[in-house]
Each structure stands twice: as C-alpha cells, then as structure tokens.
C-alpha cells in the first residue's frame, strides 16, 4: 500500500496541503501589566484591541509592560526614568 505523503514526486499539483493553526501570546514574566493591571493577553485601558496595536515592550531589567503604559509612565517622570517595578534605570531592551 502506498500513501502519497511519502511519494517523492515533486509535482506541485501532487503536493499535500497542510493548513495548520497556531496561537500566539506574549512572552512575559507576569500575567498582568504592572502599570495598568490589565492582562497582557488583553490590551492597555486606552486600547480596544489586543495584538499589534497594543504591543508589549521589555526593559533591560527584564520587566515588561504595555508600550502605552510605560511610555506614559516615563513621560510623567521628571528626573530619572526608572522601571516602576524595580526602580532601576529604564532602558528598552533591543
């Protein structure tokens, strides 16, 4: 018995088609954003849709936040720009 899957024919028409499904989520060290307390799988309070419109950013201190939340926080700091979680200097991780 032969199944076409192992058939070495390289004919395009004879190719098997595989439609796979994957889900993505943020790689974060916490479930919620430390600033807005909203889930990372969701979005910050200002946004309506999670995903590319409301991305996460990581600092060098390894803490992450919604980009909108941390930018707002940094703008409100007058002297030093510190991570709100660990009080280290905030630097965006490349």
């Amino acid at each position: 018995m032969k199944m076409a899957v192992i058939d070495p024919a390289e004919n395009e028409v004879n190719k098997n088609i595989w439609i796979a499904v994957g889900t993505w989520r943020w790689v974060a060290n916490d479930d919620n954003c430390g600033i807005c307390r909203m889930a990372f799988d969701g979005c910050c309070p200002e946004c309506k849709l999670p995903g590319d419109d409301c991305p996460l950013v990581w600092g060098e201190c390894s803490h992450c936040f919604h980009i909108h939340c941390i930018v707002k926080w940094l703008n409100s700091q007058q002297v030093h720009q510190l991570c709100p979680m660990c009080r280290q200097d905030w630097k965006f991780k490349e």
């Binding site: 070495p8 088609i17 439609i19 889900t23 999670p50 995903g51």
Partner: peptide, 13 residues
C-alpha cells in the same frame, strides 16, 4: 518536498 504548509496565526483574545 511534498507538503505545502499554510498557518493561521490567531491572537488569543
């Protein structure tokens, strides 16, 4: 050689 893959990426929320 013989599998054509298509992936649908879903946003969890």
């Amino acid at each position: 050689k013989n599998i054509e893959l298509t992936v649908n990426i879903l946003t969890m929320g």
